[in-house]
């Protein structure tokens, strides 16, 4: 177990660095979109501030909402640490989910709304949403959609 310790620490460090990079990149792109778009309402860059949250609780219970989101992120972080420690998933998966959700939480905490700017069809999202989505998709694809690892060795098949 002790021989795996340095490897686990390196994976954890890299995951923390990736999560921090997601937060920085998301905040930078939100700022850039605000500055570059000039308040336009058409095209791929449409900066909007979106206060909405689950169950329509946004306006009345913002502190509660922020607390709930922080608790959710902490839960994902705890599961992420356990999952990477058991080699169940690569470290970049929880890093993307945690980084993306933290950045949106930061928006809610500081501005009272999430800044969205990327118009895709009728949706307006941001880089943090894409990071969370990529983490969820990565978790499913690398772990759950993977074919079974046990393949029969040629010439050693069991015939009954």
């Amino acid at each position: 177990v002790t021989t795996h310790q340095p490897i686990r620490q390196a994976v954890r460090r890299r995951s923390i660095a990736l999560a921090a990079s997601v937060v920085l990149a998301d905040q930078a792109t939100k700022l850039a979109a605000d500055l570059l778009s000039g308040g336009q309402r058409h095209g791929p860059l449409v900066p909007v501030r979106n206060p909405r949250f689950s169950l329509g609780l946004a306006a009345t219970t913002r502190p509660l909402m922020v607390l709930a989101m922080a608790a959710g992120i902490a839960l994902v972080a705890a599961h992420g640490v356990r999952a990477t420690g058991r080699n169940a998933v690569p470290g970049w998966i929880p890093a993307l989910v945690i980084g993306g959700s933290l950045s949106n939480l930061l928006d809610r905490l500081l501005l009272g709304a999430v800044r969205d700017f990327l118009a895709i069809g009728h949706l307006v999202i941001n880089l943090a949403d894409l990071a969370v989505l990529a983490g969820v998709a990565g978790c499913y694809l690398t772990r759950l959609a993977r074919p079974p690892a046990t393949t029969p060795i040629p010439g050693r098949e069991v015939h009954q």
Binding site: R52, S54, R86, V97, N104, V124, V136
Partner: peptide, 30 residues
């Protein structure tokens, strides 16, 4: 047993991540 624990941990992580995605992004997108 180890494989089962790994799978269970991954499923828990996926469920938590999905919950975060739905709670955080869903209401803003739809």
């Amino acid at each position: 047993m180890t494989k089962l624990r790994q799978l269970a941990t991954a499923v828990m992580l996926l469920a938590g991540s999905l919950a975060v995605l739905v709670a955080e992004t869903g209401p803003r997108a739809f």
